[in-house]
Simulated scan of single mutants.
Amino acid sequence: MSGRSSLPLLGPLLGRRPLLPILLALLAAAIFLADTVTNLEIAVAVFYVVIVLIAVRYLDRRGVAMVAAACMTLTVLSFFLTRAGAVPAGVVNCAISLVAIAVTAYLALRAAAAEAQAREAQAQLAHITRVTMLGELTASIAHELNQPLAAIMLNGNAARRWLAGGNPDEAGKAAERIVRDAERASELIKRLRGLTRKAAGKAIWLDVNQLISDTLTLVETEAGRAHVALRAELAGQLPRAQADPVQIQQVILNLILNALEAVSGEEERDVTIVTSPGRSGEIVIEVRDSGCGLNGVELDHVFDAFYTTKPEGLGMGLAISRSIVESHGGRIWAQPAVPRGAAFFFSLQAGRTGSRGSDQ
């Protein structure tokens, strides 16, 4: 009797959560039947570890414990029901199978817990990085928020004067401008709250061009203070991408801030953000600068954790960006720009069409 695992054939079905209990039950029944009809010398029950490994991937700790306990119960029951074979050998094989199931469940749960802790630590680090970036942009954010607030004050005073002068039509127009500027301020605050939140993100159908336009409002003042020409070349009719806007905005912000720092002190200070359709239905976002380039930078390690060319850098920004992009099924890379400078690219998997392009 051979004990082949049918896991490769079940792979496409295991992702369907409603079918998972049925599939596990059928697989357990097949192993139980094979273990019962074969001799006691054949340790078919050891294949219950496959069920445990599947359960670890799709169930919580309690569910895995219940599955492991059920497999161990079936192993013992099969031993008592098996008629053929030597009993001493059956006792040894039964004990081996029970130990294998228990150890597999324990180690798999430990590995799953460690992986969950690693993801949580990475999420915490990404949150700290976002807050740090916003701290660097304090002046820019304050300026961007002050503009609609100042406009609200001016229009409010104008509306009072128009009402006092008996001109309600002009007062109504001033009130409309107040509402518009209040919505603008509200949207900015909403974006900032999204960037500072610690909760897990949610993927939506994302207009990448619009997200870049929103992100540029956060860095325009910073670029102006540094005398950097900040441009956007956004391709028209880009498909949408299914992504978490907060995380993708963090990647864009990080690359733009790096580019602004790269051109500081240069005679030509240009930073350009480009979107374009890529291969195999990708959306490619490029952040290009006119700085000193990538001389002395190891391109194979530029996205590694703690790798940095900055005297005071931690080397985590690009590593977190790579993690975010890869978790969205994309890729990130860097290469020298022409005629000078550096260009950083990342891609997202495209979905739906409908984004408009613009130049700023």
Rank of each mutant, 00 (worst) to 15 (best):
Ala55Met: 12
Ala55Trp: 07
Ala55Gly: 05
Ala55Gln: 13
Val56Leu: 05
Val56Phe: 00
Val56Arg: 08
Arg57His: 04
Arg57Glu: 11
Arg57Val: 08
Tyr58Cys: 03
Tyr58Pro: 14
Tyr58Met: 07
Tyr58Thr: 13
Leu59Met: 03
Leu59Gly: 12
Leu59Gln: 08
Asp60Trp: 13
Asp60Ala: 14
Asp60Arg: 07
Arg61Thr: 13
Arg62Ser: 15
Gly63His: 15
Gly63Ala: 07
Gly63Arg: 12
Gly63Cys: 10
Val64Cys: 06
Val64Pro: 00
Val64Gly: 13
Ala65Leu: 12
Ala65Lys: 09
Ala65Tyr: 00
Ala65Asn: 09
Val67Ile: 15
Ala68Glu: 05
Ala69Val: 02
Ala69Ser: 09
Ala70Leu: 15
Ala70Gln: 10
Ala70Trp: 13
Ala70Arg: 08
Cys71Met: 15
Cys71Thr: 13
Met72Thr: 05
Met72Asn: 13
Thr73Lys: 10
Thr73Met: 12
Leu74Ala: 09
Leu74His: 13
Leu74Thr: 12
Thr75Ile: 05
Thr75Asp: 10
Thr75Ser: 12
Val76Pro: 14
Val76Phe: 06
Val76Trp: 14
Leu77Thr: 08
Leu77Lys: 09
Leu77Glu: 15
Ser78Gly: 07
Ser78Leu: 04
Ser78Ala: 04
Ser78His: 07
Phe79Met: 01
Phe79Trp: 14
Phe79Val: 02
Phe79Lys: 02
Phe80Asp: 04
Phe80Asn: 07
Phe80Arg: 11
Phe80Leu: 12
Leu81Pro: 02
Leu81Asp: 02
Leu81Ser: 01
Leu81Ala: 08
Thr82Leu: 06
Thr82Asn: 12
Thr82Cys: 10
Thr82Lys: 11
Arg83Pro: 05
Arg83His: 06
Ala84Arg: 06
Ala84Phe: 02
Gly85Asp: 03
Gly85Trp: 00
Gly85Leu: 07
Ala86Gln: 05
Ala86Phe: 03
Ala86Met: 04
Ala86Glu: 08
Ala86His: 09
Ala86Gly: 09
Val87Gln: 05
Pro88Gln: 06
Pro88Thr: 03
Ala89Gln: 04
Ala89Thr: 00
Ala89Cys: 01
Ala89Glu: 09
Gly90Cys: 05
Val91Gly: 00
Val91Leu: 10
Val91Asn: 01
Val91Pro: 01
Val92Met: 11
Val92Pro: 03
Asn93Arg: 02
Cys94Ser: 03
Cys94Met: 11
Cys94Tyr: 10
Cys94Ile: 00
Ala95Gly: 06
Ala95Gln: 01
Ile96Met: 01
